[in-house]
């Protein structure tokens, strides 16, 4: 299977990364190449095989409901790109 330049644009938008017009074709080729590699999976029949999400057979540990973290705003915002009155700033969100 190959990925078309149109699909590259669609994927790039889903992933919120702009792609230069000149690079679209190259990405289409690169991604198609990777897909061809990936499709070697199809040579094996995996029907009935349980998908494996984690390498180890463990279950989720639970944390006691205790407040252990306190205000660290100054530290955490020290290198933030745009902050005012303790808020992170972004271009106007329209709803």
């Amino acid at each position: 299977m190959s990925i078309t330049p149109n699909e590259v644009m669609k994927i790039a938008h889903l992933a919120r990364m702009s792609v230069d017009h000149d690079d679209v074709e190259r990405y289409a080729q690169d991604l198609s190449g990777i897909l061809n590699l990936v499709e070697h999976m199809n040579q094996v029949d995996v029907r009935g095989i349980e998908p494996m999400a984690h390498p180890l057979d463990m279950c989720q540990r639970l944390r006691a409901d205790v407040v252990t973290e306190f205000n660290q705003r100054d530290t955490l915002q020290a290198h933030a790109p745009a902050v005012e009155n303790g808020l992170f700033l972004v271009p106007k969100v329209i709803e």
Partner: peptide, 16 residues
């Protein structure tokens, strides 16, 4: 482990 209390100053109850 951050608090869920309502009405705190912005971003004072948000850790890493």
């Amino acid at each position: 482990g951050s608090s869920t209390a309502f009405g705190a100053e912005p971003n004072t109850q948000a850790n890493v």
